Simulated assay, not measured.
Amino acid sequence: MTASERLPSTAIDTTTPSIARAYDYAIGGKDNYEVDRELLRQLNQAVPEVNVIAVTNRSFLIRAVRFLATQGRIDQYLDCGSGLPTAENTHQVAQRLNREARVVYVDNDPVVVAHGRALLEENENTHFLDANIFEPQEVLESDLVREKLDFTRPLALLQVATLHHHSADFGLPPAEVMRGYIDALPSGSFVAFSHFLDPENEHSEMAHRVQSILNASTSKGFFRTRTEIMEMLDGLDLIEPGLVINDEWWPDGPNLQELPPAGHCIVAAVGRKP
Score class of each variant (00 low, 15 high):
2 T>K: 08
20 A>V: 06
57 N>Y: 09
210 V>P: 09
231 E>Y: 05
85 P>Q: 07
183 D>A: 09
35 V>Y: 00
52 V>S: 11
93 V>T: 01
130 D>M: 11
9 S>M: 09
27 I>M: 13
121 E>S: 12
202 E>G: 14
256 L>R: 07
162 T>N: 15
208 H>F: 11
272 R>K: 15
54 A>Q: 11
92 Q>I: 04
71 Q>A: 07
93 V>L: 07
73 R>E: 03
173 P>V: 08
58 R>S: 09
76 Q>E: 12
259 L>S: 07
5 E>Q: 15
150 D>Q: 04
148 K>C: 00
205 E>T: 10
41 R>S: 03
247 D>M: 06
206 M>V: 11
252 D>P: 05
143 D>F: 03
21 R>C: 05
54 A>D: 03
174 P>G: 06
221 G>F: 01
99 R>D: 12
191 V>D: 09
121 E>C: 07
188 G>D: 04
54 A>W: 01
254 P>T: 11
144 L>P: 01
266 I>P: 07
252 D>Q: 11
219 S>R: 04
242 G>V: 05
263 G>T: 08
117 R>L: 03
257 Q>N: 12
244 V>R: 12
184 A>V: 05
159 Q>E: 01
3 A>C: 00
3 A>L: 07
161 A>Q: 03
193 F>S: 12
197 L>Q: 10
84 L>C: 05
169 D>N: 13
197 L>D: 14
